[in-house]
């Protein structure tokens, strides 16, 4: 392992980390602007041109606020909660392929931190850990509302993980690999997995909404019933971390959906572009295409938030266990049958 390899990976990790934070920061701005657009308002427009500096002002406010730790809380775990939420949100991007390999001179640079053989399962594992930050924070606050919210979050995540896993199984049957790099390479040009797995994609996107606690599944943060949610007792940047982690989660799940189902950095006519732009610019255009897809998904997340009202808790469980899981199993069976028939003839 030579030193330049290590440096290269460090730079890549730093860039990805920076990009996730900036995107999460501007997602808060985008959310307000999208909400304003959908409700025929203007949205934030005071700080800077078009209100572009609003996220910075919000961040500064969060840092300057007084930090309050409730007297009867579990101090240690109260601190750990937001940190854990941020950690689990950020480590998911490690296995995402951000673009095809860049060749500078005779050096090939992979735009992916690590291509592990079980990349898809790694993402799934990180998603399932995401609930710990919420649970620990909610419990440590020693507040009944926070606890209720934490328990809601946990049961919601566990329920929707099942159908998410089942929809991934159907995808695996099509791709025959769990390495995200190979999955993306298979979708070269326009052979996107969403064409082969439309139902699987629908299930996956519904489960992503539930896993990221976004509307219409934002029951853990249902203000009318729970005051605030699992972060009722939090103030200052600890609250900021929880809100931030949610936006990073949204970015990560948008990335995963673009990678798994919408071809990642592939786009129709990419061979022609690659031939005419060379080995450095070509892959970077692919990366730009990937980010365009990610932003489209993030917009979709926000669009849904201001369109569909929140579910009731029993409706949520009903949808998860009695609709999505049978559909996911049916999807697996149908995929298996089609693959068997195609192989036979």
């Amino acid at each position: 392992m030579d030193i330049s390899f290590v440096i290269e990976k460090f730079i890549l990790v730093a860039i990805i980390f920076g990009i996730s934070l900036v995107i999460a920061m501007y997602s808060t701005y985008a959310e307000r602007k999208v909400a304003a657009f959908l409700q025929d308002r203007l949205g934030p427009d005071r700080a800077g041109p078009f209100g572009m500096l609003q996220p910075l002002a919000d961040g500064l406010k969060m840092f300057m606020k007084e930090e309050i730790v409730p007297t009867n809380s579990n101090k240690m775990l109260f601190m750990v909660g937001p940190g854990l939420a941020m950690l689990t949100a950020c480590i998911g991007t490690a296995v995402i392929p951000w673009g095809s390999d860049i060749t500078i001179g005779d050096r090939v640079i992979a735009l992916q931190v690590t291509d592990i053989n079980v990349g898809l399962l790694y993402i799934f594992g990180v998603v399932s850990l995401g609930v710990y930050g919420v649970m620990i924070g909610g419990w440590a606050s020693n507040n009944k509302y926070s606890l209720l919210s934490a328990i809601r979050a946990a049961s919601q995540n566990i329920s929707y993980e099942v159908s998410m896993g089942l929809s991934i199984i159907a995808l695996l049957m099509v791709t025959n690999t769990m390495s995200l790099k190979e999955i993306v390479e298979q979708q070269h040009g326009w052979h996107w997995n969403v064409l082969y797995q439309p139902l699987g994609f629908l299930l996956f996107i519904i489960c992503s909404f539930a896993e990221t606690n976004r509307a219409p599944f934002d029951l853990p943060e249902c203000e009318t019933e729970l005051i605030g949610g699992y972060h009722t007792e939090y103030s200052s940047m600890k609250l900021g971390f929880y809100l931030f982690a949610e936006y990073i989660n949204m970015f990560v799940s948008a990335t995963v959906m673009a990678t798994l189902y919408f071809g990642g950095y592939n786009y129709p006519g990419m061979d022609w572009v690659l031939l005419h732009t060379g080995p450095v610019i070509g892959p970077l255009i692919g990366t730009a295409v990937l980010f365009a897809k990610i932003f489209a998904f993030i917009f979709f997340f926000m669009w849904v938030r201001w369109t569909i009202p929140r579910f009731r808790y029993d409706q949520l469980m009903h949808l998860g266990w009695k609709t999505l899981i049978p559909l996911a199993i049916a999807n697996i069976v149908i995929t298996g049958l089609v693959i068997a028939i195609v192989e036979k003839f």
Binding site: L121, Y122, F124, G125, S128, L129, V131, Y132, M135, W139, I151, A154, S155, N157, I158, E161
Partner: peptide, 15 residues
């Protein structure tokens, strides 16, 4: 092990 024990079973325990 990560998914099943850490992600699912222990969440239920904690729950």
């Amino acid at each position: 092990n990560f998914i099943v024990y850490m992600g699912a079973i222990m969440v239920l325990f904690l729950f």
